[in-house]
Amino acid sequence: MKSTTMNTALSSQAIDKRARRRAGAKLGWYTHAAVYVLVNLVLLGLSANGFGTRPWSMFPTLGWGLGLTLHGLSVFLIGAGGGLREHLVQQERERLQRQQGRL
């Protein structure tokens, strides 16, 4: 019976590539959040100073906020290298290794 092991060691190049991808995803979310805040502050300021005939509406802000929240979840929890994903991957590795020992 042939035994296979899962290699979890990464080369320095693989670590660098993964770190750059994670940092890029986080930077993308920070940019998204900054644009969200700036745009909504400008819209609120314009509305408060009487530009336009309609009052500022919270609904577009809430909709965009939901998108920003989902983006954050995908970056920080679910995405590659996220805490939840890494935890689930580790659980699956352990389960598969236990099953392999029983075969």
Rank of each mutant, 00 (worst) to 15 (best):
1 M>H: 06
2 K>V: 07
3 S>K: 08
5 T>K: 13
6 M>Q: 07
6 M>F: 08
7 N>E: 07
7 N>I: 10
7 N>Q: 11
7 N>M: 02
9 A>S: 07
9 A>L: 07
10 L>S: 09
12 S>D: 15
13 Q>I: 08
13 Q>P: 01
13 Q>F: 05
14 A>V: 10
16 D>R: 12
17 K>R: 05
18 R>F: 05
20 R>H: 06
22 R>M: 13
24 G>R: 13
24 G>P: 04
25 A>S: 14
25 A>T: 04
25 A>F: 13
27 L>Y: 14
27 L>I: 15
29 W>Q: 00
29 W>K: 01
31 T>E: 05
32 H>V: 01
35 V>E: 05
35 V>K: 08
36 Y>T: 00
37 V>W: 14
38 L>H: 03
38 L>F: 12
40 N>E: 07
43 L>P: 00
43 L>Y: 09
43 L>V: 03
44 L>W: 12
45 G>H: 08
45 G>W: 11
46 L>M: 14
48 A>P: 00
49 N>V: 12
52 G>D: 08
52 G>S: 08
53 T>G: 12
55 P>N: 09
58 M>C: 03
59 F>W: 14
60 P>W: 02
61 T>C: 02
62 L>P: 00
62 L>E: 03
62 L>R: 03
63 G>K: 01
63 G>W: 10
66 L>T: 14
66 L>N: 02
66 L>G: 07
66 L>R: 05
67 G>Y: 01
68 L>V: 06
72 G>D: 02
73 L>E: 11
73 L>A: 13
74 S>R: 10
74 S>E: 11
75 V>Q: 03
76 F>Y: 15
77 L>N: 04
78 I>L: 15
79 G>F: 04
80 A>V: 03
81 G>H: 01
82 G>W: 01
82 G>C: 06
82 G>E: 00
84 L>F: 06
84 L>T: 06
85 R>E: 12
87 H>G: 07
91 Q>S: 05
91 Q>C: 04
92 E>H: 09
93 R>H: 11
93 R>Q: 14
94 E>I: 10
94 E>N: 13
97 Q>Y: 03
98 R>S: 12
100 Q>Y: 06
102 R>A: 11
102 R>D: 09
102 R>W: 11
